[in-house]
């Protein structure tokens, strides 16, 4: 882009309004989670009652636990599987690679609701009871493609001779994998894992269709509770916002701080 100058007054107004538009609703929900009445429009005083209700509500706490457990499991499994698949993909024949890449893109390109109903019918055809297992399998299914997409570019820029050299020097394939390839593609793996975690943590549509037997995640709970005015949703939402923001800030700031330290030394 051309002129690298300071942003003019018109530009500043546009950016200010943009920030307002994006962050006002988020601030609004945080503020009203501390409201002492049920109202979503009038703030009548500070109170923590909606947080108390949230923490004493079994379905809400269960949903939080399910969301976190599923997100962690789905992240670990899809990061491992996606990394291995991406490495395999980078070495396999072009024809097979093309097919797998196309299929891998399907869940990303398809509207989520289509993926969701496909899985719903698939699980019930197998006779699997909808619940924790189907939820976890579905999350692994839609997270792994993102890990592959994030790891693959790193593999493409990797010198294929490096692993060969390690093998020639007597490393076992496993050693070549863990000591040579994986460290080089680590940034891709980390960002893939981050994407997988947030995709799983935030997912609504697919989870909504494939879960059952009282296994809910936070999104499903917000959806079902929002039919009536229930300020506990605000408390739950605030919890989600804080959790995600803090983890994003950590992920974004840690490299910057490390960089600064290195510069100082």
């Amino acid at each position: 882009m051309a002129p690298k100058q300071r942003t003019g007054i018109g530009g500043k107004i546009i950016l200010g309004l943009t920030a307002l538009f994006f962050y006002l609703p988020i601030l609004y929900i945080i503020v009203f989670s501390f409201n002492d009445s049920r109202s979503l429009t009038k703030f009548s005083g500070f109170s923590l009652q909606w947080y108390e209700r949230m923490f004493s509500d079994r379905t809400m706490m269960q949903a939080i636990v399910y969301t976190i457990v599923i997100a962690i499991l789905a992240t670990i499994i899809s990061t491992l599987a996606g990394t291995l698949a991406a490495i395999g993909l980078s070495r396999s024949r072009r024809a097979l690679r093309n097919v797998v890449e196309q299929v891998n893109n399907l869940p990303i390109m398809n509207p989520e609701i289509v993926t969701a109903i496909g899985l719903l019918m698939f699980f019930s055809a197998l006779g699997v009871n909808k619940g924790f297992l189907t939820l976890l399998l579905a999350h692994i299914m839609f997270c792994t493609p993102y890990v592959i997409l994030s790891v693959s570019p790193k593999l493409r820029s990797l010198d294929p001779n490096l692993a060969d050299a390690a093998l020639d020097l007597g490393a076992t394939p496993l050693q070549a994998l863990t000591k040579v390839i994986v460290p080089q593609i680590m940034p891709g793996i980390v960002s893939g894992a981050l994407i997988a975690f947030t995709m799983s943590f935030d997912d609504f549509i697919i989870s909504y269709f494939v879960t059952g037997n009282g296994v809910n995640n936070i999104s499903i709970l917000v959806y079902t509770m929002s039919k009536r005015v229930n300020p506990s949703i605000n408390a739950l939402s605030t919890l989600v916002i804080v959790l995600i923001t803090v983890s994003l800030l950590i992920v974004n700031l840690v490299p910057i701080i490390k960089e600064r330290r290195r510069e100082k030394e």
């Binding site: 291995l84 490495i87 070495r91 097919v99 797998v100 891998n104 496909g118 019918m121 394939p173």
Partner: peptide, 27 residues
């Protein structure tokens, strides 16, 4: 560089079952 080529097969099978089959069921 063939050592890691086989690592694609488990995922290829997984995608066939978890991605392709559900799409076929919609059809």
């Amino acid at each position: 560089m063939r050592q890691f080529r086989n690592m694609i097969y488990p995922y290829a099978v997984w995608t066939a079952i978890m991605i392709v089959l559900p799409m076929l069921m919609i059809l």
